[in-house]
Amino acid sequence: DTINITLPDGKTLTLTVTPEFTVKELAEEIARRLGLSPEDIKDTHNGKTLDPSLTLAEYGITPGSTITLEIK
C-alpha cells in the first residue's frame, strides 16, 4: 500500500507502508530518503501534527492518503 508525502517544495514522494507503521517509522523512512534527520521532520494530516507513537491506522491514514511534510 502506498501513501503520498507532500514535500515543502510541492513535490510528492510516494512511500510503501502498512497501516501498522508508526508515525515515527514513517518519519525515519522519509528522513532516510531525503537525507535528513528524523527529528527534523514534522508530519501533518488534515491540519493536525501527528504523534510519533501512534500508527497510521490510528489516524485513519489509508492507501492513497496524503501527508504533508514540514521541515523543523
Rank of each mutant, 00 (worst) to 15 (best):
P63L: 06
H45S: 13
S37Y: 13
K72Y: 11
T44N: 08
E29W: 11
I71G: 05
T6V: 15
R33M: 12
L69N: 01
I71L: 14
I71W: 10
F21W: 14
A57M: 11
L7T: 07
E20A: 12
S37L: 11
G60M: 03
R33I: 13
A31K: 05
L15G: 00
T44D: 09
K72M: 12
P63S: 08
L13N: 01
A31F: 09
I30Y: 01
A57R: 13
D40I: 11
T62M: 12
Y59V: 15
L36D: 02
L54A: 14
T55F: 02
K11F: 13
I5F: 05
E58V: 03
K48S: 13
E39R: 09
T18V: 06
T16C: 09
R33H: 14
L15K: 00
P38T: 12
G10C: 08
L54C: 10
P8V: 09
G35F: 05
F21G: 04
G47A: 02
I61A: 03
T22S: 04
P52L: 13
K48G: 12
T14D: 03
S53V: 05
L7K: 01
K11Y: 12
G35Q: 07
I41H: 02
T66M: 06
H45I: 15
L26F: 10
T49Y: 15
Y59K: 01
D1F: 14
T68G: 07
D1N: 13
D43V: 15
N4S: 10
E20T: 13
R32D: 07
T14P: 03
A31M: 06
N46E: 09
T22N: 02
S53H: 11
I67G: 01
S65T: 11
A31C: 09
T18Q: 06
A27V: 15
T66L: 05
K48I: 15
S37W: 11
G47N: 08
T14A: 09
T2A: 08
L50F: 12
E39D: 11
L15W: 03
I41A: 02
E70S: 07
L36W: 12
T18A: 06
T49A: 09
G60C: 04
K42R: 11
T6N: 14
S37N: 13
L34D: 00
G60A: 03
L34T: 14
T2N: 07
H45E: 12
N46L: 12
P63F: 04
L69P: 02
E70W: 06
K11D: 10
T2K: 09
E70N: 09
L26T: 01
G64Y: 03
D51W: 04
K24H: 09
E20P: 03
E25Q: 14
T44M: 13
L13I: 14
T49E: 14
I67M: 06
E29C: 06
K11C: 10
G35M: 05
L26M: 07
G10Y: 04
P52A: 14
T2L: 09
L56W: 02
E58M: 04
G47I: 10
D51T: 03
E25L: 06
A31N: 03
A57G: 08
T6S: 13
T6R: 14
I61V: 07
L54K: 15
N46W: 15
T12L: 09
P19S: 06
L36Q: 06
T6D: 08
E70I: 11
T16F: 11
K24P: 00
K72P: 11
E28T: 07
D1P: 13
K42E: 11
I71N: 05
G47Y: 05
G35P: 01
I30T: 02
T14G: 04
L56N: 00
E70G: 08
L54M: 14
I41L: 13
K42W: 14
A31Q: 05
T22F: 01
A31H: 05
S65G: 05
K11P: 06
I5T: 01
E58H: 10
T22L: 04
T6A: 14
T2E: 08
G10H: 05
T18E: 05
L50E: 03
K24G: 15
T6K: 14
T16Q: 13
T16R: 10
L26N: 00
L34K: 00
L26V: 05
T22E: 00
T2V: 10
E58G: 03
T49N: 09
Y59H: 09
K72Q: 12
L15F: 07
N46A: 07
E28R: 05
A31E: 05
D51F: 03
D40R: 07
